[in-house]
């Protein structure tokens, strides 16, 4: 396994990232540094490509230009073997949980261990139960994914993402669609796991309050560019009108309330459909 480089060097370093889908430009010259041991949030409105950014960092998508270094390695220049070796040190929590639906909770969490280690069944059992205990679901180990609530599925997915003790975990919209209790549990878990396991965490989210409560550093992105970055307080009280509108949830501002259209009077009096 490749040794980690200097702890002062960012864990993920993105430079000049460009990515397009067809003619639509998603990222246009994005520079982001993800520090080690911290929780970094990537925030922005829906459709700005936050999930795409995680897939680019994980090497599931290739950028049209720019570089992404993960722990000092250019992820898009790695061969399959090295890429998979690096991914074993990266956990990812998908928005849907992405649990395998034909096996139970225990087997889902044990899956990476069975695939990548030669540990004995009793050792695998202990590790899985410890990880499930950490997310509060040791008692749910025999349930099938279809029997879990959305919040429970994400906690199981979190246990699975942690089971190989990765250096980083990427969270894709972890708070979306959660009830207040599940939301609170997830917020606590993400912070506690990051600190206890000395992880580095990347959260992409548009849930401002929850994310700002646990993030050490926030990048706000829109229209394919980084608008601003800094600590949560600085972002909430930003002098940039766009950042302020997003962080404070204002209905109108630089992002207009109305979708671009002709003048209302012209539309009403025009007659044509």
């Amino acid at each position: 396994m490749v040794e980690s480089v200097d702890s002062q060097v960012p864990l993920v370093s993105i430079r000049g990232l460009r990515f397009s889908r067809g003619s639509r430009v998603i990222f246009d010259g994005v520079d982001i540094d993800i520090p080690r041991g911290k929780i970094t949030a990537i925030m922005g409105p829906s459709g700005t490509g936050k999930t795409t950014l995680l897939k680019l960092i994980g090497g599931q998508l290739r950028p049209s230009a720019g570089t992404i270094l993960v722990d000092g390695q250019d992820i898009h220049r790695l061969g399959n073997r090295d890429l998979y070796r690096l991914r074993m040190r990266m956990g990812m929590l998908f928005q849907s949980g992405a649990l395998l639906t034909d096996i139970d909770v225990f087997e889902n969490v044990a899956y990476p261990l069975r695939e990548h280690t030669n540990l004995s069944p009793s050792m695998i059992r202990k590790l899985v139960l410890l990880k499930l205990e950490a997310v509060g679901l040791r008692g749910a180990r025999e349930l099938m994914p279809s029997e879990l609530s959305g919040g429970m599925a994400r906690r199981v997915a979190l246990a699975r993402a942690m089971v190989l003790d990765p250096m980083m975990i990427m969270y894709d919209e972890p708070f979306t669609g959660q009830d207040p209790i599940s939301m609170g549990v997830l917020v606590e878990l993400i912070r506690a796991l990051n600190d206890a396991s000395r992880l580095s965490s990347i959260i992409v989210s548009h849930d401002v309050q929850e994310t700002a409560a646990i993030a050490d550093l926030i990048y706000v992105i829109s229209n394919g560019k980084v608008i601003e970055s800094g600590g949560p307080e600085a972002m909430i009280n930003s002098e940039l009108a766009w950042t302020r509108q997003f962080m404070q949830g204002l209905a109108d501002g630089p992002v207009p309330f109305h979708y671009p259209a002709a003048e209302l009077a012209d539309d009403l009096l025009g007659g044509a459909c």
Binding site: R85, R87, M92, F94, S96, L100, T101, E115, H116, R160
Partner: peptide, 18 residues
Amino acid sequence: ATEQLSGLEMMAVDPIRR
């Protein structure tokens, strides 16, 4: 559609082979 194949890739498991 439910990201299970992507999930396998991110667990360093090739979904085609597995």
